[in-house]
């Protein structure tokens, strides 16, 4: 990455320990006012630390090898995780929805990612590990959040307001016509957080990626340029993937009568 090299202070084992000491504060608070978060704090922090160490080691290997097949496999692994997490979080059954969701995630996020690498970053190697993996992770993570809200609200709304949907069908609407108000509503809710994030960037907080780059020694101007482009691709990929996911799951989640299949829901009403 361009920009003047400023040395980033090393984080030693001692620095890590110093940081972990800070956790004494929430633990004391929890103890004093019986917040009962001591166990969950300990397990969350332990999980986070070990997961990140593992990722750190793996990424070192993957970056060193920088083999395009391996990089793609890594990205597909992330896509699979994102799909799994989305469906689990919206409390729908895996079997019927996994395929449409994973295909939607893969197509939309990968195409935005490759476009970014080709036309924005102008990389020689589109599948360069150092860009493909972290940027892919960022857009996937955001797509996931958008989809949990979007898909979750869509299928919940259909179930809660089934009579409204059936009434629209009775008026002669095609399946997609009758579903359009639900699609619109859930897409709007899923995009709201992303839009709020975009419009407050730099005002309320310095976005994480930009902060990381500045810490890494990149000039603020280059860091904000990266941040602008990243926010745009996050928005675009969230819109695309949520739309695709909802539209593609409709094909499997509704029967030939246009009715939602009750068996896709995990919880009975």
């Amino acid at each position: 990455m361009a920009g003047p090299e400023v040395s980033t202070p090393e984080i030693t084992v001692l620095s890590l320990i110093m940081c972990f000491l800070l956790l004494a504060i929430p633990l004391v608070i929890s103890y004093r006012i019986k917040l009962d978060i001591i166990n969950s704090t300990a397990s969350s922090v332990a999980r986070m630390t070990s997961q990140l160490f593992l990722v750190g080691v793996l990424l070192t290997i993957v970056f060193d090898l920088n083999n395009w097949i391996l990089n793609l496999v890594w990205v597909f692994g992330m896509v699979t995780m994102a799909t799994y997490t989305t469906i689990r979080n919206v409390e729908l059954k895996m079997e019927r929805l996994f395929l449409p969701v994973i295909i939607s995630f893969a197509i939309t996020n990968l195409s935005v990612l490759l476009y970014f690498n080709e036309f924005v970053l102008d990389l020689e190697n589109l599948l360069e590990a150092r860009f493909l993996i972290p940027i892919g992770g960022m857009i996937l993570g955001n797509s996931l959040r958008g989809n949990v809200v979007g898909m979750g609200e869509f299928y919940e709304d259909i179930r809660r307001n089934e009579n409204r949907y059936l009434y629209n069908l009775s008026l002669g609407a095609k399946k997609y016509e009758a579903l359009m108000p639900y699609i619109r509503k859930s897409l709007r809710s899923s995009l709201k957080p992303t839009l709020a994030n975009i419009s407050t960037a730099g005002v309320v907080f310095l976005p994480g990626m930009m902060t990381g780059q500045i810490l890494g020694g990149v000039t603020p101007i280059l860091a904000i340029k990266y941040q602008i482009t990243i926010m745009i691709i996050i928005y675009v990929s969230t819109v695309m993937s949520t739309t695709f996911c909802i539209l593609s799951t409709i094909r499997t989640a509704f029967d030939e009568y246009g009715l939602v299949r009750k068996e896709i829901y995990k919880r009975k009403k």
């Binding site: 409204r164 009434y167 069908l169 009775s170």
Partner: peptide, 22 residues
């Protein structure tokens, strides 16, 4: 059947107990 119902929905006007337009 599943193909016929789409035709019926175009020809029949249905007023339900509680019309819910949204």
């Amino acid at each position: 059947d599943s193909s016929r119902v789409w035709e019926i929905r175009k020809e029949v006007a249905y007023v339900s107990q509680e019309t819910d337009l949204g």
